[in-house]
């Protein structure tokens, strides 16, 4: 079936039904054309199966399909970002951090304390560079909690989350952002897409203001990050 993901028409060649149900909300109206094909090779499937032996085969295949798609996104001016994206007033904010750092928790604080905030994608959004701006897209892959919707919003700021006893937010330099952001990307290993990823990241870190938020899980933490991120300007 052909799905429309991040503005691209993708043909998934899946053997298992899992993906059809998983991506249901992204089914393309026109099934007769597509921009790219994603499929899981036997080798990729076996490798993924080793990583998550308890998961069912449909789930394993689904993970492989998304990876196959994401590894070819740079060629289409897009890339996968491991982040939680919150949308407020049509503007997207990306929360990033190591596993367990609290990006989901902080996103939920926004839902609770910032009026009109919605989670666009809780885990694996796709970012598109249209030559001028970066647009965050919701995808079917939205994390354990399944928080997100099929939509998009202009990305305004990045915020790396770290747990702390007191709330503090600081601007990061582009060099600091580069170091931090690389661990949250999927790096293709073919030359064309690897080079394109670096070119996109260059534009990304020089155009999008980035911060580190050291925070607890209070209302004050959400209000602080909202205040600073919503008024952030580029250097």
């Amino acid at each position: 079936m052909v799905y429309e993901i991040a503005g691209l028409k993708v043909l998934f060649k899946n053997k298992y039904k899992f993906t059809n149900a998983y991506c249901e909300k992204y089914l393309a109206e026109d099934q007769n054309s597509y921009d790219l094909v994603a499929e899981a090779t036997d080798e990729e499937f076996e490798e993924e199966k080793k990583q998550s032996p308890i998961k069912n085969d449909g789930y394993i295949e689904n993970i492989c399909l998304y990876r196959s798609l994401c590894l070819r996104l740079p060629d289409f001016d897009r890339f996968l970002l491991h982040a939680s994206i919150v949308e407020k007033d049509g503007v997207a904010y990306a929360f990033l951090g190591k596993s367990g750092a609290g990006k989901s928790t902080h996103s939920r604080l926004w839902l609770k304390y910032i009026d009109g905030a919605r989670i666009l994608n809780g885990d694996k959004p796709i970012i598109f560079y249209d030559g001028k701006e970066f647009i965050a897209y919701g995808t079917p892959w939205n994390g354990k909690e399944g928080m997100g919707y099929n939509g998009s919003a202009k990305l305004k700021a990045l915020c790396f989350i770290e747990q702390a006893k007191e709330n503090k937010i600081e601007r990061l330099t582009t060099s600091e952002v580069a170091t931090r952001v690389f661990t949250q990307l999927l790096l293709p290993s073919d030359e064309k897409n690897a080079a394109k990823t670096l070119e996109l990241v260059d534009k990304f870190i020089t155009n999008i203001p980035a911060f580190v938020l050291k925070c607890d899980i209070s209302e004050e933490a959400a209000k602080l990050s909202y205040r600073e991120l919503s008024k952030a300007e580029n250097f």
């Binding site: 580069a178 690389f182 790096l187 290993s189 030359e191 690897a194 670096l198 260059d202 870190i205």
Partner: peptide
């Protein structure tokens, strides 16, 4: 492959090199 990223340059592994070294 090496490209200018922000104020620096970054090198990432490709092909077989990407299997033995992960990161940038």
């Amino acid at each position: 492959v090496v490209r200018a990223v922000g104020d620096e340059h970054i090198a990432v592994p490709i092909g077989d090199r990407a299997k033995e070294f992960h990161g940038m």
